Computed example of a mutant assay.
Amino acid sequence: MTMPTTAALARTVRGDGPGLLLAHGAGGSVEANYGPIMEGLAARHTVVGVDYPGSGASPAAQGRLEVDELVDQLIAAADDQGLDTFAVSGFSLGGPIAIRLAARYPKRVTALVLSATFAHADTRTELAASLWQHLYEAGEHTALAAYLNLMVLSEPALNALTPAQVHTAAEQFAPQLPVGTPGQVDLVRRIDVRGDLTHVTAPTLAIITTADPLISPALQRELAAALPTAETAEIPTGHLPFTERPELWLKLITDFLGRTARS
């Protein structure tokens, strides 16, 4: 059973200028993942994002999430804003969704930015995601929040906190975990867009999070190497550049989009 295309998903629309679609990560939302840099993105672009089922104000899915359904939602949001062409930024799970979109709509995608992402889950990522999904479904939400601190923060960022601070943060974050978490993480485990990579024609920037415990830099570089149009940049951060290095993340994205727009 797949998610019906008629599901009404919450949208974020900000700014003015060339189109920029945002695809967020599993267990996140447009605001959670792009909020810290939204003002900078919207200063130069019409930014359009869609919260996946069970994130933000979007209702939970009635069945399994499928990548093409999420692509359809992003395209519908772009169409409603009158955007014939647009760049696409994908973070984490949003990366393979952005890749599928760029492969399906090569004439509409002007540029692609991929951050902390992958074309398929390797064994290490699948194991991390399976524990993530299990802890949520078992109702162990505080333990999951603590586990996510371990899996998303760089070693320096995590060690800058005391164990007591980490415990308190986990207790505070646990009630905020999106209800769509298990379905989104299940998609992380299943998604595979390696067959789409040769169909991506847009100039692409792969931003490698070099201290990422969740999506290893090696897996990120494997994706970049398989994309004929990709160049790479590095951020010394864990899985969450918007938390650890938001200014640098914004600069890499906007500089690349500005350069591709002029070329």
Rank of each mutant, 00 (worst) to 15 (best):
A160C: 08
L161R: 15
L161N: 15
T162Q: 13
P163C: 08
A164R: 15
Q165Y: 07
Q165G: 13
Q165L: 08
V166Y: 06
V166F: 07
T168E: 13
E171S: 13
F173N: 12
F173L: 15
A174K: 04
P175E: 10
P175Y: 07
L177G: 01
L177C: 00
L177F: 01
P178V: 01
P178Q: 00
V179I: 11
G180I: 02
P182V: 01
Q184D: 04
Q184K: 03
Q184G: 04
Q184A: 04
L187K: 11
R189T: 12
R190S: 09
R190V: 03
I191M: 09
I191T: 09
D192G: 08
V193N: 07
G195S: 10
L197V: 10
A202I: 05
T204N: 10
L205C: 06
I207M: 04
I208T: 08
T210G: 04
T210I: 08
A211C: 10
L214S: 14
R221W: 06
P228G: 07
T229Y: 08
A230L: 11
T232R: 06
T232P: 02
A233G: 03
A233D: 08
T237F: 02
H239Q: 03
F242I: 07
F242A: 07
E247I: 09
L248C: 07
L250F: 03
L250P: 00
K251M: 09
K251C: 09
D255S: 14
D255G: 14
F256V: 00
